[in-house]
Structures are given as structure tokens and as C-alpha cells.
Design a protein around this nucleic acid. Structure first.
Lengths: 256, 256
DNA sequence: TTTATTAAGTGTGTATTTGACACTTATTAT
DNA sequence: ATAATAAGTGTCAAATACACACTTAATAAA
């Protein structure tokens, strides 16, 4: 039996990293300068952070490595959400120049396992990137054209986030340890793209038991200072499919 | 730039195929006879159906091919649910004999994209398998030890099924086109492993709009004949996150 | 020091949905 | 004729959802 040359695809992980700051959901992207042979200037290319999976890594570990290399953070909420494997998802891309600079075989098929990360963007100290590469936070409504099929991956991630945030108490992962009701509501309004009723929202959140009030309050704000709350991670995890509601007519019934 | 030999993993799709018959959820497994050099008898090995992804296939297509080769069916409900990529998930397996019979490099790493299929088991005409291989329906509470990490994959699939059946109207995919309320309720009771109240169940299902009554009824049954219903696939898909409800205390509030 | 501005914080009544509960009906088998 | 079986049906009380507007505490501005 002869050994035919391996045509196995490469396997990578890509991370769709969400953050929340200034009332805006943001995406952490890689920005690269790509030499353009024609213009002799650099083209700018944005992409999701990702890397090929190493021989001794499982998929979660690979994604966590990508995340840690970029942000310096460990123990972040990170969950696999979909795998993309169109045979031409890389080869049909216009981004050969980049591929040639990072891979031995730029034409090879790459199957990528996509992860979604939720991160308190205050915690991030962006790691000093290499000469031609840096990480940038981009508001989700200003996401530029991305490399390969990364726009599709991002859109799927956003859809998954919208869905999951209504099912599971994961929104908290985007906030600092201590947060106010206002921040929390604004986060949900941003993700769900609709207004929520303040009183109903508070009531549900409090009654759900997944957050606890502190005695501490804001200081230095030019309005009534808000109370801080913390997320009860243990409680939420031991009451798994917890807090939020759907309704029969198809509408969600979360917060108003 | 020298070309190093490819150590890329293989990529496969595996299908966790659920069916429902005789009030029981069942799994469609491959049963293989593996020659055992010591005993000179055959060992029996069960596994999830799956195959390496072909060069020109995307992942969905690969999984659909596996499903079609086994059942002869196309257009089946099939959804990707998780990718498994532990570096040792294959190599540490005791099932080398099988690997040697099907693969050139039995030690290679294989990353597998797992799919969940829901199928009306009445529709299945199991395709004549090869000499040493056949497909069998196994009740989910009698699933034997499976090859590789397939037990884990199956368990994750079952968990995903339980979760999704409460969020989306997918249970119908396991039933024939025409079904009775009794069948539908029994399906849900089986998946959720608890009893549901008959009147409340009917009310919710009818009110949700995802099923419609026919005038046709059962014939030849030795009790009051049940009305048949059909699933409104279009309606359900255009009212996406539809019918079912959760409750704030963490309990699901589907049907009673 | 008064006034304006801002966001926080709070309660109630009505409508809808849930969940518990038991008897009658239509068919075949005996 | 009678028994056996599963289908089919309605109501009431409790819980939850939803709509809605004013007061409070702080800083900023005048």
C-alpha cells in the first residue's frame, strides 16, 4: 500500500472577542500591514485573531492561547460556537500576500474552529504586537471588511451572542467585577438592540438571584450615585438554565 | 523555503443520528466486526457513523454524505453541534485494529466535527452495508461502549438535543409527517425524561401555531382514534425562536 | 447659593400565562 | 354486552408579564 502525499487540511482556531465600553459592543481585531507590490504602499487588513492548532494542543487550549497572546488574560469566558470548513474559504480570498507571509503553503485548505470570547475590556492590556501587527477594538457597527470569511464568522458569533445572552447569564462576563444596574441594562439593550423597561429589568435581575448588591456606590458622578452589584458566578452555574424567559407568541419576554 | 512534511490532522465528520420508535429514543450506530489476532474470532465494535472530509466537500456536505450513505435519505435535519479535537482522542483508543483496516496512518490525529441528525426512523431503509459492517438502531439507554471518544460525543449530543428541543420546534423532525398528539407528547416526555400534563401540553402546542390538525384520524386502533396533525415547518421557521418558555426560578416552563 | 441637569431608584394595577386537576368518548377485543 | 384503552375536553387559582411617572441625590452652571 503506497502512501499518498497528505492533503489534509490545516486546522485553526479563530476568536471572536467581544468587549463593551462607552455603551458600545466592540470586537477585538488584528490589524496588519500588508506590502502591496503594485503600489509599494501597505494595504491594511483586518482579521479575527487566530492561529493554527498545535500538535499537542486541544481546541480549547489553542483558542485560549490565542486569547492570552493577544490580551495577556487567562480564565476568560471562551466558548466554541461553530466550525467553518468551506474548501475555498481561504484559497478564494484576496489576501494572499498575508498568507504568503505567514504560511508555507498559502493555498492549503484551512478548517477553523470558531470561538466566542466575552471579556471585560478594562482588563485588557493589549500585548505589544509585532512590527506590522496590532490589536484594535472596533465598534461592532463599524467592523470593516475582514480577511477570508471572517465577516461571516463574526456575524454568526454575534447572532450566537444575542441568542445565548437571553438564555444564560453571560452578559456579566463583559462587565467589570462591580457594575451598576445602569451599565447592566445598557449592555443588554446594546446586545439586543432594543429598549428595556428600567423597573421590570431591575426586578427580574434582582429576583433571579444571579447578582448581589454591594453597599458601595459610585462616587464623583454628577447625579444620584448608583449602587454597585456583583455577579454570583457560582450561583448562576449551579442554577444552570436560569433566569430568562421566552414567550409563546415567539417574542422574548426578558425584561419588558 | 523548504517544505516540511505535513503533520496536519485529519478532519472528519461524525453523525449522532437520533430516531424515535416504540416510545424510545434510539441512536443509529455502525456495528463492525474486527478481526482479533489473538482469539482469531471477531470483536464487535460500535461507533458513530462518520468519515474523513473530502477535499472538495464542505462540512455540512460531508455530514450529509455520511447520513445519505447510511440511510439513503437526503434533506434530513442535520446540525453541527460541536467539534472535538483532543490530540489523543484517536491514538489512545484501543481500537487500532479497526483503524488499521480503514486508514493509512492509524496514529494520525483526527479532529472531528460532530453533527446531530433527527430523523423519522420509519423513513430509513438501512442501506446494505459492507460485509463486515452494518447499521443498527440502539435505544439510548442501551448504548454500548463505543469506539474512540464516541461515547462522549453522543452524550454531548443528547444534552444538546434536550436543550434545543425546549428552545426550538425540532422534535417534529423525529416523527412521521402525520402524527398524533399522543405521539408528540410521548416524544417530548422521552426526551425530557419527565411526565407532562396532557391538557396543558395540547393547549400549548395548538396555541403555538406550529402544528395544524388534519381531519384524518387513526383507523384500526382499539380505542378512540386520535386526530392527526402536521408540522408547519414554514411557520416555525419564520417565527424563529418560537414556542417554548422558560421560567425565572430556573425551571423550564414548557408544558406543565 | 440657588437653579438646572442628569441618571438612579421605586410600586401598582391589569392582562396574560401557568399549572393543577377528572370525567366522557370512541374504538376494538373479549 | 362488557371491558379495556387511549383520546379528548374546561376551569379556577396563582404566578408572571407588562405598562406606566414621579422623587432623589449628586454635580455643574448660573
Amino acid at each position: 500500500m503506497s502512501i499518498t502525499p497528505s492533503l489534509n487540511p490545516h486546522v485553526s482556531t479563530d476568536c471572536v472577542i467581544f468587549g463593551f465600553s462607552q455603551e458600545t459592543l466592540r470586537l477585538l481585531l488584528i490589524r496588519r500591514n500588508i506590502p502591496n507590490r503594485l503600489t509599494e504602499l501597505n494595504d491594511v487588513l483586518y482579521a479575527l485573531p487566530g492561529d493554527l492548532v498545535k500538535d499537542d494542543e486541544n481546541l480549547d487550549k489553542s483558542a485560549n492561547r490565542v486569547l492570552a497572546e493577544l490580551t495577556g488574560l487567562k480564565g476568560i469566558y471562551l466558548t466554541q460556537f461553530q466550525t467553518f470548513g468551506d474548501p475555498l474559504r481561504i484559497a478564494k480570498s484576496k489576501d494572499r500576500a498575508w498568507l504568503e507571509s505567514v504560511r508555507q503553503d498559502p493555498d492549503a485548505r484551512v478548517i477553523t474552529v470558531a470561538y466566542m470570547a466575552l471579556i471585560d475590556s478594562q482588563k485588557v492590556n493589549l500585548q505589544p504586537g509585532s512590527f506590522s501587527e496590532e490589536a484594535v477594538w472596533v465598534p461592532i457597527h463599524e467592523v470593516p471588511e475582514l480577511a477570508f470569511d471572517h465577516n461571516e464568522i463574526y456575524e454568526q458569533a454575534l447572532a450566537a451572542l444575542k441568542e445565548r445572552v437571553q438564555m444564560q447569564p453571560i452578559g456579566f462576563e463583559l462587565l467589570p467585577e462591580k457594575f451598576t444596574m445602569g451599565q447592566l441594562q445598557s449592555l443588554y439593550e446594546t446586545i439586543l438592540e432594543r429598549d428595556l423597561d428600567k423597573r421590570n429589568f431591575r426586578r427580574k435581575m434582582i429576583n433571579s438571584g444571579v447578582i448581589s448588591p454591594l453597599t458601595e456606590k459610585q462616587i464623583g458622578v454628577s447625579n444620584k450615585p448608583a449602587r454597585y452589584y456583583v455577579y454570583n458566578r457560582e450561583f448562576a452555574q449551579s442554577n444552570p438554565s436560569s433566569i430568562f424567559n421566552l414567550r409563546m407568541d415567539g417574542s422574548f419576554t426578558l425584561f419588558n
